[in-house]
């Protein structure tokens, strides 16, 4: 079965990102396919590589990146939500005249259509938020 997963909150303040990560891992462990993880609202903040959590805490961004690298999970950050909140890839940084980008490895920035597509293509869409 194909799963789409939506993450609507950033890391650390709400449990939503942790729940979504644990759920995504379990989907893969059960032998299902993850069509896409879509990050919306403050969820886009999962995709900055500039977080520095304390050494004895989980690193939420690195956890996501590992899923992308080990399982080819498609991690998509909503461009409209990302622009509001300062999550940029190199292209966007250049296009918007900003002096840096901050997107983490394994994430990509794209449009809201990717969320609708996940709803259409996946057999199940599961949302985590606040």
């Amino acid at each position: 079965m194909k799963f789409g997963i939506v993450v609507n909150e950033g890391p650390y303040t709400h449990q939503a990102a942790d729940s979504a990560y644990q759920f995504t891992k379990a989907v893969l462990e059960k032998g299902h396919e993850v069509f896409r993880v879509f990050f919306y609202h403050d969820g886009v903040n999962n995709g900055t590589r500039l977080t520095v959590p304390p050494g004895d805490e989980r690193d939420i961004q690195k956890n996501w990146t590992a899923l992308a690298e080990e399982h080819k999970v498609d991690l998509v950050i909503c461009i409209a939500a990302a622009q509001r909140r300062g999550i940029l890839d190199a292209n966007e940084a250049k296009r918007q005249g900003k002096d840096a980008d901050n997107i983490a490895p394994g994430f990509r920035i794209s449009g809201l259509g990717q969320l609708i597509e996940a709803g259409i293509e996946a057999d199940r869409l599961v949302t985590f938020g606040d």
Partner: peptide, 20 residues
């Protein structure tokens, strides 16, 4: 249920709705 059971439940029911 554990997270694996969560996945099974999502598969068992036709759709999922989050009450955020």
């Amino acid at each position: 249920v554990d997270y694996g059971g969560f996945v099974d439940l999502v598969a068992k029911y036709d759709t999922t709705q989050a009450w955020l």
